[in-house]
Amino acid sequence: MASSFYSNAQHVDFESVLGMDDPGMVSMFEALVASGLRGFLGCLAVVYEAALVDFFENASVRSGVVISTVGGQLVEISEELFAESFELPVVGLGDLSEIPKDAIFDARSIVSLSGEPINLSGRKNQLKMPFFLLCDIVAKAISVKAGSFNAITVEKFSLITAVVCKIKMNWAKYLFSILKKMVSAGSKQAKGFAIQISLVLATFPTLELGESSEFPASKILSKKTVLRFVSINDRDGAEEVTGAAKKKAVSKKRPAADVGAAVPKKKRSFKKKSISSMELVEVAEEAIPIQQVAEPLDVEESRCSSADAVDLIIQ
């Protein structure tokens, strides 16, 4: 089913979100526009499902070009065609590993909810809400990674840094490299870019694409869906913090059973003597009344009594 290619996708209605009354959110979306990603993330939200299934079933990479057949017709998508279709920047860094370390260091504090540099192996609830959403966008619409979307990874945070710190990226090269991974045999890259591939296929005049279907409104970030996103994640975040606090409070008090288990019992040991088993039985039977003392002995008296008892046994 073609829907599996965009089950986790997100798209952006820039006209709607740039008119929000939330300065933080508006600033984040303006940063996406300034990065040159508006044409890619905000293109016409239409999917040609039959053509999309055909494309992925038959696609491969040859000489750096993505080749496939759709409806029995050959299709070639080059990096240049991909860049032109979405007006993507072609100048700048083409690899995330080239992003300056000092920019990543600065971004760790800029996006932090607490003000302290975030942990790059932590979860996205460390982030202020606009960057919490940005983390979702880069994961689902740009890097298209399968797995947990709550975890922060080096790749996700590098993409966030590129947007937040306004680093010039060759988005044409980077995004096209992801498309090539999607169609390469043995690659673990999840398949996506459903809207973008549909738009590129529509530029081939001789292709029969079949009926188009609208992209699900729930997956398009508009003023309405962003407000809903904030409401849900604010609530979930509060519940998570409250749950963690309760768990911590409970863990401070050790259950009674644990206290007993934590204190090891001392075993009385005797020096080895050549005493027969019958003599040991007699001694044990005679030693029972010693334990039935009306008042507890203090430490020194207890030590002395124990020593006397040992002497008696030896005699």
Rank of each mutant, 00 (worst) to 15 (best):
A2Q: 10
A2Y: 09
S4D: 14
S4A: 14
A9F: 06
Q10N: 11
E15N: 15
G19D: 12
D22G: 06
P23N: 10
M28C: 02
F29H: 00
V33N: 00
E49N: 15
A51T: 07
A51H: 03
V53T: 10
N58T: 15
V65L: 04
V66A: 07
I67P: 01
T69H: 10
V70H: 04
Q73L: 14
V75D: 02
A83D: 03
F86W: 05
V90I: 15
G94T: 12
D106G: 13
A107N: 13
A107W: 05
S109D: 13
V111Y: 06
E116Q: 12
E116G: 02
I118N: 00
S121F: 05
S121P: 00
G122F: 05
G122N: 05
K128F: 12
P130Q: 03
P130K: 03
D136K: 02
I137L: 07
S143P: 07
V144E: 08
A146T: 10
G147W: 03
S148F: 01
C165E: 09
C165V: 00
C165S: 08
K168L: 10
N170E: 14
S177C: 12
M182P: 04
S184Q: 11
A185F: 09
G186F: 04
K188H: 05
G192A: 12
A194M: 06
I195N: 03
Q196K: 10
S198N: 05
L199Y: 04
P205D: 09
E211M: 08
S212C: 09
S212K: 12
S213M: 11
S218Q: 14
T225M: 06
T225P: 03
V226W: 01
S231P: 02
D236I: 02
G237L: 03
G243Y: 08
K248S: 11
V250S: 12
A256W: 01
V263N: 00
F270Q: 12
K272I: 09
K273P: 03
S274Q: 14
I275M: 15
I275D: 15
S276L: 13
I288W: 05
V293R: 11
V299A: 14
R303S: 12
S305Q: 14
S306M: 11
S306C: 13
V310P: 02
I314S: 14
